[in-house]
Amino acid sequence: MKEIVVISGKGGTGKTSVMGSFSYLGKSDLVIADCDVDAADLHMLLGPDYQRSEDYYSGELAILDQDKCINCGACLSVCQFDGIQSENGTFRIEAMNCEGCGYCQRVCPTNAIQMETQKVGEWYTSSSKVGSTMVHAKLGVGAENSGRLVAQVKNEARRHAKKEGKEIILIDGSPGIGCAVNSALSGADYVVFVTEPSVSGIHDLKRVTELVKGFSIRSGCIINKCDLNSQMLDELITFMADAGIEHIASIPYDETFTAAMLEGKTLVEYDKGPASQVLIKSWEKIKQFAETEGCLK
């Protein structure tokens, strides 16, 4: 079984559109895992049916029992996160700020504070409209973007891949370099970067490449909007060559991506234009790369 992760570092490079097209192209061989759980968009292209949903609990929140509280302020004095607010001599928990460390509970002389596990999201197992199984999640607003939810989505996807005898798990990773991306990369066989030839695109790709290096995973790159700036394109290609990132393909700026999205379709099912052709070839390449034993591993 091979795990292919699609990430971008910078947002707005077309990662989810590319991911959607690959899901469509590989539908009979793969299970999809949407690990971009904070503002997940892939479901809009793949029409999952939310067959099964499960609550996701994570972290704790301090709950203050006003009847037991003697307003001594011990909690306030230890909290590092502005999680305790005092108004006119009484105290309350500011849930948005509470980090869940439980220090206040430990110092409260009257046991007025309890720590409660919170439901912070849901995760789903679906059959997507392209036919393959899709595991995805919705993280509640303001929740900690925990790597565990990502790990859970991936594990469920692995389980299904095994059960259905699918060879590939295609993973949509999140932006940034924090804990969610770390979780998405762990155990992956191949990483596909989707970037653009802009100062920000290059800058973010460099940072996320540092992270991927730490995992010793092979990687390749799709350059979207490749005709945006030729100087930046040269710089990007040089960087990729130096970093050992395979150049999978380049796609010129194309508003068909948006047109397809407006109809809730992946690009390759929307039309057979030049961008679709590039994506079809890219997917073939990626499958090959992922099957070749890694030179970096």
């Binding site: 968009d41 948005m96 607003v141 303001g142 973007n145 924090g178």
Partner: peptide, 25 residues
């Protein structure tokens, strides 16, 4: 995004500008 880092960044702002684009995403 919508998780902790965004909240931390905007919690003491007097005003928040949300930038979006006119697409389904």
């Amino acid at each position: 995004g919508t998780s902790c880092p965004v909240i931390e960044a905007s919690k003491d702002a007097d005003f928040v500008i949300l930038v979006t684009e006119p697409t389904p995403f």
